[in-house]
Each structure stands twice: as C-alpha cells, then as structure tokens.
Amino acid sequence: MSAMGEAVDRDQFIANVRSAVEAVSRRSHELASPVRRRDGGPAGEDRFLLFRDCLEFAGGQAHRAAGSEKLREILGQIIAGRNRLVAWGEDLPAGTRQVLSEFGVEWLPPLTLSPSNAEQGIPPSITEAQVGITGALLGVAETGSVVLASRPGENLLIASLSSIHVVLLGIDQLVVTLGDAFVRVPAMFPEGLPGNVAFISGPSRSADIEQSLAIGAHGPMEVHVIVISS
C-alpha cells in the first residue's frame, strides 16, 4: 500500500470512470436546481399540528407548551416515577433550564474532551439514564424529525443511549420540509457541517423479525418533543 502505488491506482480509477462517461454526451443531462416548494407551507400552530401528526406517524409524541406552567405539567407526566435524568444545557429554548432544574436533572457540561479523555469511555450517567433531555437545531414538520448536531458536549450520546429522549424545541425552530432543513442547517455552520448531524424521527425501531414492528432496537424507546413558545 505504498503512497506511489495508491496515486497510480487512483489516477487509473478516475481515468476508467472518465473514459466511460465520455462515451455519453455529458450535456444530455443538465443539473437542475434543487426542487423546493414555492409557498412557505403551514405556519404557526398549523405547522405544529403538521409536526405532531408526522411525529405520531413515526411513533413519537409531540407536545405543545405555551408557558412554563404547561411545560412543568408535560415534563411531570413524561418523567413520572423515573429518577435518573440527564440533560445537555446548550441549544435549549430560553427559560427552560430553570424548569428542568426543578426536576433534579443532572446537567452534562458542554466540555470538549481531549482524545485521551474520550478514551476513558462514556459517563455512566449517560448509559444508565432513564430520561435524556436535549435541545435541537430544528424540527422538521413534514417528517416529524428533530435535527441534532455534534457539538462540544454529549447531546448526541444522550439522544442515542437514553431510554427516553425528550427534546425541547422553540416553535420558531420548526421548518416545514426536509429541503428547508438542508438550507437552514448548513447556514448555521458557515465553517462547514459538524462531523455528525442527525435527523431523528421518533423512537428506534426494527421490523427485522417477521416484519413485526418492535420499538427500541438500539436507541430510545420513547421520543417526546415539547414545542415551546418563547
């Protein structure tokens, strides 16, 4: 696997592809602009209703909390009887940290681990968490998705490993289409996309045994998204 050998192989690989495609007229297939819908789609509460419908279709649950009191009530119902709660503090809608603290969540700091720290493994508070709470970059109404990205901190690990994942989202963070998300997300990261961006739509599932749907394959068994007015 010498560097020289690789370079020769690489050039030969590309040359093979090039000579193959030059056999057809390249101009016969122009690149059209990505297809986007012209109107903005439903707005405000209607957008939330679309989101709720689509998240439920994907097996998750959407809740609407117009104020702190409502948020307390919804969190109380989800968390009831479960005491190992972890939360990641960044990207949360304004004013929600206080409410979460009342429930006794363990805050995981937005630390950058050095490579040697990372090798020490995953904090047991995450692997043993019953409920993991994070914010998100966006919610996508027509697919019932929330979008999370790797940051300094453990948000993606919480989203992958907790038994119940609760996402707090401001209503102004909801977009309508996947296409909207593919425009908005890169715009948030002018330096380039984070290493890992996850579109999460409902709980982890598998239908690999006799095509019967079973929830909770490797990720969370429940996904709740609480949409908050800021």
Binding site: A58, N196, V197, P203, S204
Partner: peptide, 11 residues
C-alpha cells in the same frame, strides 16, 4: 415511512 427514524449526515 415518511422518513426513517435516523438519517445521519456524517462528515
């Protein structure tokens, strides 16, 4: 499905 549970964009 409308979208799979997970769509990962890996960079």
């Amino acid at each position: 499905q409308r979208l799979t549970t997970y769509v990962s964009l890996l960079s």
